[in-house]
Design a protein around this nucleic acid. Structure first.
Lengths: 126, 126
DNA sequence: TATACAGATGAACGATTGAGCAACTGTTCA
DNA sequence: TGAACAGTTGCTCAATCGTTCATCTGTATA
């Protein structure tokens, strides 16, 4: 006989009640904001996420905070290119930086990033 | 004495248990996918969302399905411009179309769209 | 102080892209 | 049939964007 325990929830899924709630609230609020001028702000946020280099930077930082040269090494790009993109990500409030001696350590600034990327991941996996 | 009822949940928020679960799973999965080649697919999905015209189209369609000329009217653009963007959105699996006589009716193709836009909305509202 | 390294920044180049125009297809209605 | 309308598509152009290169600042080490 199996022991009584918390019901196992499939990874990445919410309980049906919460999923329905999230879905309903999401639809209503998304449809409503079409009337106000938030479309442009949304678009520029997504544009920030819509570049392969910047996305790879964000995913790397989702693993752990990294300095510019580590990012450049692991992505196989110049530090200059990475620095340019980090500047945009920082201006958009997606990453923050902390100076420590000669290095500058970057990390994600906003847990919303996970909440945005995760459903997108489910979309591209169809 | 107040009647016993479902606890009122603030709009747009999940119960704390589900929120924590979603957050945890989100972080883990997002960090992990950095290693596989999904960054490019994610970026091209977000690039699709990263244009003001396309975002306004999506938000309009979140309200209700619309034909091209209605979209063009309500957004103050030519049908050609809208059609060009709808083509991209359709190719990306974000909208679907249904022909009905002279008109072509477009609607959102994926409920993930809400799940992606909603947290983004919370981000830009800080 | 001199050297080396991490990072930032501005200019410039090549590539991409959104919108407009014109031409075209397909449907409706007189 | 023919006119009118809805929508699509190829072409073009101006604007935007990402990367590279050269240069500059600031910090650590010899």
């Amino acid at each position: 006989m199996t022991k009584r325990h918390e019901p196992r929830r499939p990874e990445g899924l919410l309980c049906s009640e919460c999923a329905a709630h999230l879905d309903m609230v999401g639809r209503r609020e998304v449809a409503r904001c079409g009337k106000s001028g938030e479309a442009e702000a949304l678009a520029s946020l997504f544009k920030l996420l819509g570049d392969p280099t910047r996305m790879r930077v964000l995913l790397a930082l989702a693993g752990s905070p990294l300095c510019v040269c580590d990012l450049a090494d692991s992505l196989g790009m110049t530090a200059s290119a990475i620095s340019h993109q980090l500047r945009l990500l920082k201006r958009g409030g997606l990453v923050k930086s902390e100076k420590s001696g000669k290095h500058v350590c970057y990390s994600l600034d906003d847990s919303h990033v996970y909440a945005i990327i995760h459903p997108a991941l489910e979309h591209i996996r169809e």
